[in-house]
Design a protein around this nucleic acid. Structure first.
Lengths: 188, 188
DNA sequence: AGCGTTCCGTACACCCCTGCATGGTCAACC
DNA sequence: GGTTGACCATGCAGGGGTGTACGGAACGCT
C-alpha cells in the first residue's frame, strides 16, 4: 500500500517550516511526527536528538538558501547587474517564508547563533565585494553592504508580518525596480 | 520588611523582556513568577489568563514604543529634520532589545497579529506623510516610506542577531550620519 | 482591636513534550 | 523461506506549564 516511508530530508523540511511558523520551540518531535503521519519512533531512528534535527535542518538551509544563491549570481561580470539580479532573487523568491525572522528572534539559541552568524557575515561580505567592484572604497563598500542588507532583511520581515501594508509595491513592476535600485543605494 | 509587592506593570515589563528574548512561548507564567520572586498565585490575581498578560503587555508597548516616539518628533517643522531625528531615535534607542523581531517571528499569533498590524501601518503612514511634506507625490512617498521602514526594521534585526558584523558603523558618528541619510533615501 | 480588601503561597488535576527501551512490520537478499 | 536490517509503533518515567480552589499574611480604615 501507500505506506510512504519517510527519509531524513522529510524531517528536515518539516522542521524548517515549523521553525519559520512558530520559532525554535515549534520544532517539537510530537507535532512534527503527527503532521508527517508517523510517531516518535520514526524520529528517534533518523536523529539522535531534538537538537540534532534543528542543527541539521539549519545547516541544510545554510547550504541551499545562501551558498546556492550566491553561486547563481557570482559569475555575472557587471557588478551593477549582479546586485540587481541578487536583490531580485532575494526579494521575489521565498523558499521558507518567515524563516529568517524566526532565526533572528532566537539569536541567543546556541544552535541558531553560529549558523546565523556565518550566513550574515557571508552575505554582507559578498555584497561588500560587489560594491567594491563598483568603485566604492573598502570602508564605504562595507557600510553600504550593511545598509543594503538591512533593507533586504527588513523587507522580508515586512512582507511576512504585514503583507497588507505593502501591496502597492510588490504588484507594480516599476515600483519593484524602484525598490531594487533603492536597495542598491545608487539612485542618485 | 522588604516584601515588595508587585504591580501589574512589573508583570508587563517582565513579559516584554521575556518575549524579546525567547518569543511568545517564553511568556510563561512559572518562569516569570520565579524570576520576579513570587509564585503563580500572584499572577492569577493580576491577570485572568496567560493570554491577557501577552495582550496587555503588547498594548502597553504599542502605546509607549510607537505613539510616544511619534509624538516626540511630530512637532518638528522641517520634514528633513523630522526624519533625521526620528531615525536617530529609532536607531540609537532600544527600549526592549529584540522585541520587534520576536513579534515578526510570531506574526501568525492571534494576539500579536492585530497589534503588529496597527503599529506597522501607523509608522509607515507617519513616514509617508513626512516624505509627502518633503515634496514627493503620494504614491512615491508611500513607496519611499515602505523602503525606509524596511531598512530600519532590518537594521534592528541585524544589530540584535549579529552585532559583530556591524561595529564599524555604530561606533563611527560619521558613518551613522551616512546611514541615517541613506535611510532617509535622499543621498543624491 | 476588629474587619475587609489586597496580594500571595500551596495543593491538586490535567495536558503536552522528551528520551529511552522494547517489540513489531515490511522489503530485500541469499 | 529464513534471516537481516531499515523503519515505525507503543509504553513508561520524568519534567514542566496551565488553571483553579482555597487558605493565609499584610495593609488600611474605623
Amino acid at each position: 500500500m501507500d505506506v510512504a516511508r519517510l527519509s531524513k530530508q522529510d524531517w528536515l523540511t518539516a522542521a524548517l517550516v515549523a521553525l519559520a511558523k512558530g520559532g525554535v520551540s515549534a520544532v517539537a518531535v510530537v507535532p512534527l511526527a503527527q503532521q508527517l503521519g508517523v510517531t516518535r519512533g520514526s524520529f528517534y531512528w533518523h536523529f539522535t536528538d531534538r537538537t540534532a534535527l534543528l542543527r541539521d535542518a539549519l545547516q541544510w538551509w545554510e547550504q541551499e538558501g545562501t551558498i546556492a544563491v550566491i553561486d547563481r549570481v557570482a559569475a555575472i561580470a557587471d557588478p551593477r547587474d549582479k546586485l540587481r539580479r541578487l536583490f531580485l532573487i532575494a526579494i521575489t523568491e521565498d523558499p521558507a517564508s518567515g524563516l529568517e525572522p524566526a532565526l533572528v528572534a532566537h539569536a541567543d539559541d546556541p544552535v541558531v547563533a553560529p549558523i546565523l552568524q556565518r550566513v550574515t557575515e557571508r552575505r554582507v561580505a559578498f555584497l561588500a565585494e560587489a560594491y567594491a567592484e563598483l568603485g566604492l572604497p573598502a570602508t564605504r563598500a562595507r557600510q553600504q553592504a550593511v545598509v543594503a542588507y538591512s533593507a533586504y532583511v527588513g523587507w522580508v520581515q515586512l512582507r511576512r508580518a504585514t503583507p497588507d501594508v505593502l501591496p502597492e509595491v510588490v504588484d507594480d513592476p516599476e515600483a519593484l525596480a524602484y525598490l531594487v535600485d533603492n536597495l542598491i543605494g545608487l539612485t542618485g
